[in-house]
Design a protein around this nucleic acid. Sequence first.
DNA 1: ATCGTATCGTAACAGTGTTATAAAACGAAA
DNA 2: TTTCGTTTTATAACACTGTTACGATACGAT
Lengths: 186, 186
Amino acid sequence: MKLLNRAGELLSNEGPSALSLRRLAADVNTSTTAVYSLFGGKPALLDALYDEGFRRFGERLAMVPETDDPVEDLIQIALTYRDSALQDRQFYVVMFSKVVPDFMPTTETYIAASGTFVPVVKTVQRAIDNGSFLPNEAPEVIGLALWSICHGLVSLEIYGILPPGLEIAPVFERAVRASADGWRTH
Amino acid sequence: MKLLNRAGELLSNEGPSALSLRRLAADVNTSTTAVYSLFGGKPALLDALYDEGFRRFGERLAMVPETDDPVEDLIQIALTYRDSALQDRQFYVVMFSKVVPDFMPTTETYIAASGTFVPVVKTVQRAIDNGSFLPNEAPEVIGLALWSICHGLVSLEIYGILPPGLEIAPVFERAVRASADGWRTH
DNA sequence: ATCGTATCGTAACAGTGTTATAAAACGAAA
DNA sequence: TTTCGTTTTATAACACTGTTACGATACGAT
């Protein structure tokens, strides 16, 4: 599907505002109607990109190796989260920000995207079983907290609203480690 | 300025996509040109709303009383952060999300907005001086970490991409407390 | 009262997503 | 191979967006 590839390129190279149907159609030598017969419109095209973004994202997160230190595994997942987001930052804003007015993913696509979160919860569960993390805390809650600090820091970074003159990478790691420590058994 | 008031209403009630210049001008019985002579265009109008959003936001955060337990103060600031964001959620997405393509606040407006962050850092400093938080950690970093988990959770909540069937308020508080605990001296 | 600036209305321009209509391409059945 | 039916495509128009040139109006200070 040349259209989808080119849409991904346009999104990555020039951002969401360059992703107009006329521009896209002209780039692959067709007309805008193609988008409607093949996808169903611009929202559906965004849905496909949303899906693609989460596919890449989940692929990379799942690639983090599993060691016998689950808390350290979580840190590595977090670092991978940031790397992946920065690598596909234009996809990231489609996935996690309202970059296109009134765009919402299909519930089907949304459910598929939710799978990205599963390895995090599993690793948290291992940390609980391990005795590293507090028992009697729902692993989804801990996972969500760690996921959120990643999302919060990364989106602030991508939107350029972080204090300037800040070496972000070490700050990110430090923040994630502290956040994980908050769930540790003492 | 009736235009700005109506723009805020439109933004709050119907979201950013309802904020078109023609709609806005018609609602206050004028024409779109008024926006250009009074503000300078739609980006400048958004800039004014961005400013207004941060003004309200900062006002509420600064209203959190200062006790002799700075860590607890930080928790209260965090809870206020969420309350304020949910109260003005359409403003929040203008402030922290790319809801209008290629919109960026003026550096002047951005600097004013940055002031919102100051009370957080000050409270963190008090927690360090207090002996509650680890010394030799930059208060900006700790403040940023706490700010980020608030931002991460709240934006996930506002965008509706949180696991369904979740009582968010207690999860939010639990996550913030754990995140703060991560910076505590043991 | 007059001048100069600021504001406003009308209308047009370029761009967007979307859709009706008709032509073309393709695949399967006769 | 030929025919039929579905899918895909191209053209053009529609309604909408932000923006701007132009002219008229209103307002405030000299």
